[in-house]
Write a protein that binds this DNA or RNA. Structure first.
Lengths: 182, 182
DNA sequence: CCGCAGATATATCGTTTTGATATATCTATT
DNA sequence: AATAGATATATCAAAACGATATATCTGCGG
């Protein structure tokens, strides 16, 4: 792989299953993988253009039924090799940025109520995200026997497990802060 | 706050407790808050220069004992206001990027062994990070009565809780993948 | 006491990513 | 027929990363 862009691997991974437009790719990223990865048009389109030039993907059926242009991308053998190479490298950067924790850490600069408010906001966020994941999980149980779905199932389970741990922590944090004299 | 830079708030939050050099700030970020926030020199130094110009921080005691320059930064009232304003806003972006989950999600492109290898690598990472956090927690228990430490304690607890959830998931994921026919 | 490795300290640069915006077409609804 | 919302591509300024350059200070072994 020439460049050191993570978005390239995300795109290749998605294209491995099916041909997609840039817009489709964005939808996939905002869908079932959004709780562990993000990506914007500003990185997707340039990456597609670059990878097309260097032969990792190719344009397929620039469909112009009617008038509107729509560019479907297809992964090449070179692209598949790059994807597999990345999967084989025993290394992974897991970058977490919890603004909630940052605010809590600096909590001493404000009153206890502010800290509690931020924890409650976090709790609400987590609860709604968790509800979405549980729906994914229910839908998956019906097709669990299909070979490829096991990997999707594992990531969804990961999300649910961590979100449940967050909620438990929220409960305890509220108790500790609540039972603390100002 | 003029610009929309998160690093500004991190710096202000750290400077609220004590005057620091850019290098000190980097050390603090790499220390007890590294598991929920990151920051590089490439963002710290430009942010300090900007914030000094706009009056959020000021240079203190450009110590030149001997010869070597060392710039200590001090938070101003304007800086404290900006920090408190941020803490009061009921909003927080928690951005998670787990390359491990990404690889697992695309696992269908490779064999089961590769997926297992990546889970084991993740497990090792988590175990060593968890050990560090437990040491932090032990040290904190001794000073838990001190008012400001409660916030630090809560963030450390959050890290431990989530890492423990990760480990439980790793165990189950290995079982599920292990008991799966290729 | 000299050498030298490693920590301290500031700073910059190219690359990647974000988040917002612009533009235009297609589709379903009222 | 109007129009709101989804589809689709693309670009740009701003933010952050990660690597590198430079230089000094400190402690340790030979």
């Amino acid at each position: 792989m020439a460049k050191d862009r993570k978005i390239d691997l995300v795109i290749l991974g998605l294209l491995f299953h099916e041909d997609l437009t840039g817009y489709d790719i964005k939808k996939r990223i905002d869908g079932g993988i959004s709780f562990f990865w993000k990506g914007s048009f500003g990185s997707i389109y340039p990456a597609l253009a670059d990878m097309e030039k260097s032969g990792y993907v190719e344009k397929r059926g620039v469909q112009t039924k009617g008038r509107r242009e729509k560019i479907l991308y297809h992964i090449t053998d070179k692209g598949i090799d790059a994807l597999k190479e990345w999967l084989n490298v025993e290394q992974a950067a897991n970058d977490l940025k919890y603004e909630t924790m940052l605010k809590l850490y600096f909590g001493g600069a404000q009153d206890k109520g502010t800290a509690l408010k931020n924890i409650r906001y976090f709790e609400d966020q987590v609860k709604s995200d968790l509800a979405v994941l549980r729906v994914y999980q229910e839908n998956l149980k019906k097709v669990m026997d299909q070979k490829d779905h096991i990997y999707y199932y594992l990531t969804v389970t990961f999300g649910i497990d961590t979100y449940e741990a967050y909620l438990k922590w929220c409960g305890r944090a509220k108790k500790i802060l609540g039972g603390m004299e100002e």
